[in-house]
Computed example of a mutant assay.
Amino acid sequence: MRHVNRVLLSTLLVVVALVFQVTVLARLHLPGAVPDLTLLVVLALAMVYGHVGGALVGFSAGLLADIAPPADHAVGRYALVLAVIGYLAGLIKPESGQVRTAAGPMMVVGCAAVGSTLLYAGVGALVGEGSVRGVGLGNLVFTAAIYDLLLAPFTVPLVMALARRADRATTAEAAETATGGSAAGDSSYRWLAGGTASRAAVKRARSYGRGGIGRQRGNLFGPKSKSAKATRIKGVKRL
């Protein structure tokens, strides 16, 4: 159930980020690179799910970006880039699942923005596709880092909070289900034990009703009859 919730949440967040990036951010015609909202979502989920989950989310998000219009590059190019970035970002996942300061995620965003741009250009050069398209690589790297760092405070903490909350809700539901089942078993056992105890009490009451009155009579009249007999005997001796 937990993995299903993760898949559904990741799919929803990636689709929303990609649609917003294509329909809004790409139409702003900012100088240099386009703000990569999909990269920020992948980074945030990777810092919660770990390196394996980050790699899977990154590959899926990159593949979706490769086939979404107006993509003009080979399918799988950005999927490879985001899979590597998601894996590396997931390696710094804290043991407690929560980040203490914002410095760590911001450093991850800056390094990921620079690394993804360089890796994307390198993969494009390997497959023979244009990687710069009239804009200098240095300008692309600089503007990508600036745009992603500006968007990160409004995106990364929100996505991480949603992912952690979904995981906690799933864990609490599973624990509640397990506790409810054990409590039901204990209550049924207590009911059976109570029924056995009540039947035993009824048997003891019946046995007491049969022989207890006789014992009570013996206690009431037995000693008095013995003392009276002893008194009569003493009286005879005195005479």
Rank of each mutant, 00 (worst) to 15 (best):
residue 5 N to S: 14
residue 6 R to D: 10
residue 6 R to K: 10
residue 11 T to H: 08
residue 14 V to P: 11
residue 19 V to E: 02
residue 20 F to L: 15
residue 20 F to D: 00
residue 20 F to W: 11
residue 22 V to D: 05
residue 24 V to G: 00
residue 24 V to R: 07
residue 31 P to S: 03
residue 31 P to W: 03
residue 32 G to Q: 08
residue 32 G to M: 07
residue 33 A to G: 13
residue 34 V to S: 11
residue 35 P to M: 12
residue 36 D to I: 12
residue 38 T to D: 03
residue 48 V to Y: 01
residue 50 G to A: 09
residue 51 H to W: 00
residue 53 G to P: 12
residue 53 G to Q: 09
residue 54 G to A: 11
residue 57 V to K: 11
residue 62 G to V: 03
residue 63 L to T: 02
residue 64 L to M: 13
residue 65 A to S: 13
residue 68 A to C: 11
residue 68 A to R: 05
residue 79 A to P: 06
residue 80 L to R: 05
residue 86 G to L: 00
residue 89 A to V: 01
residue 92 I to R: 04
residue 93 K to F: 00
residue 96 S to L: 08
residue 103 A to K: 04
residue 105 P to A: 02
residue 106 M to R: 07
residue 106 M to V: 05
residue 108 V to N: 11
residue 115 G to M: 12
residue 123 V to E: 07
residue 123 V to S: 10
residue 125 A to R: 14
residue 128 G to R: 01
residue 136 G to K: 05
residue 139 N to T: 14
residue 144 A to F: 05
residue 147 Y to R: 05
residue 151 L to W: 14
residue 153 P to L: 06
residue 155 T to R: 02
residue 158 L to I: 06
residue 159 V to R: 01
residue 160 M to D: 04
residue 160 M to K: 09
residue 166 A to H: 04
residue 169 A to G: 06
residue 172 A to F: 10
residue 172 A to H: 12
residue 174 A to V: 13
residue 177 T to A: 14
residue 178 A to Q: 15
residue 182 S to F: 11
residue 182 S to I: 13
residue 183 A to E: 15
residue 185 G to D: 14
residue 188 S to V: 08
residue 196 T to W: 05
residue 197 A to H: 02
residue 206 R to N: 05
residue 210 R to I: 08
residue 216 Q to A: 13
residue 218 G to W: 00
residue 219 N to E: 13
residue 233 I to L: 12
residue 236 V to D: 10
residue 238 R to D: 04
